[in-house]
């Protein structure tokens, strides 16, 4: 296996007396397609919040590309190469679709550069690759659900990440739309970007991932190939009840 990009070791997070994560450890290799599943409330989003910096983990360490990042604010992690989409889309709603992409381009890629035209051209390129180019000047609060999901991914891509975390980018989409988003993620992965996919749509996450981890009540209950995961009795119990 190729070298490790992200190493999460013994990470815990509690909210008051509730243990959202207890000593979770994961290693993700450069270029991997990694799936994260688990019932509602199992800690998936908390885990990626800890990785992306929206939350600080209480214990354990998170090493990305050789840097210990668990003390860093989120914007610095983004600059190191971690980008994410949000489960509930959070566009910059006062801006057009194109301007949404200019934020990471200006703050991560071309910091304080004066070449506004180049930045715009790059944003357009990303929008074209997501087939959002015709919406470039649309205010982002006028987008449909699937367009919002694509904008989330496009904005994450504009930060030129090495690790992309997709948090339920397909929830609520029709099956053709799911295929569309999956194709985008596959294309990104083929270009060398490591992808963590959190998803409830089993067909999507199982078809996409090379390796899957299942969380339940803040613990990893199973890890393996997609085929082995679906047969695992622990996983079946977590999803269907005993």
């Amino acid at each position: 296996m190729s070298e490790t990009l992200l190493r999460v070791a013994q990470v815990s997070k509690h909210f008051g007396g509730f243990n959202a994560l207890s000593e979770v450890s994961i290693e993700i290799a450069q270029g991997e397609r990694f799936g994260l599943i688990g019932p509602n409330g199992s800690g998936k989003t908390t885990l990626i919040n800890c990785i992306s910096g929206s939350l600080r983990n209480d214990g354990g360490s998170i090493v990305f590309d050789g840097h210990e990042i668990s003390g860093l604010p989120a914007f610095e992690r983004t600059r190191l190469g971690i980008a994410r989409s949000f489960q509930i889309p959070r566009p910059f709603s006062s801006m057009s679709v194109l301007e949404n992409l200019l934020v990471p381009l200006e703050y991560v890629v071309h910091r304080r550069s004066m070449h506004a035209a180049d930045t715009r051209a790059e944003a357009m390129q990303i929008l074209e690759s997501m087939s959002l180019a015709d919406k470039a000047d649309t205010p982002s609060n006028r987008l449909t659900q699937v367009e919002l999901r694509k904008l989330e991914l496009a904005r994450a891509m504009a930060a030129r990440p090495r690790l992309l975390i997709s948090d339920e980018a397909m929830a609520g989409l029709s099956s053709t739309e799911v295929e569309e988003v999956l194709a985008i993620l596959r294309k990104l992965n083929a270009s060398g970007i490591t992808v963590i996919m959190i998803e409830h749509i089993m067909r999507a996450v199982m078809g996409f991932s090379q390796r899957v981890i299942c969380l339940d009540a803040g613990r990893i209950i199973c890890e393996g190939t997609p085929e082995s995961i679906v047969r695992d009795p622990e996983v079946q119990k977590a999803y269907l009840g005993a």
């Binding site: 992306s52 910096g53 929206s54 604010p73 989120a74 914007f75 610095e76 983004t78 600059r79 980008a83 994410r84 949000f86 959070r90 566009p91 910059f92 709603s93 006062s94 801006m95 934020v103 990471p104 703050y107 991560v108 904005r155 994450a156 504009a158 930060a159």
Partner: peptide, 15 residues
């Protein structure tokens, strides 16, 4: 960006 949504702004590299 941070007025619209602070968390997403931070995750887009905005300090």
């Amino acid at each position: 960006a941070l007025r619209d949504t602070e968390e997403a702004a931070e995750c887009s590299g905005v300090p």
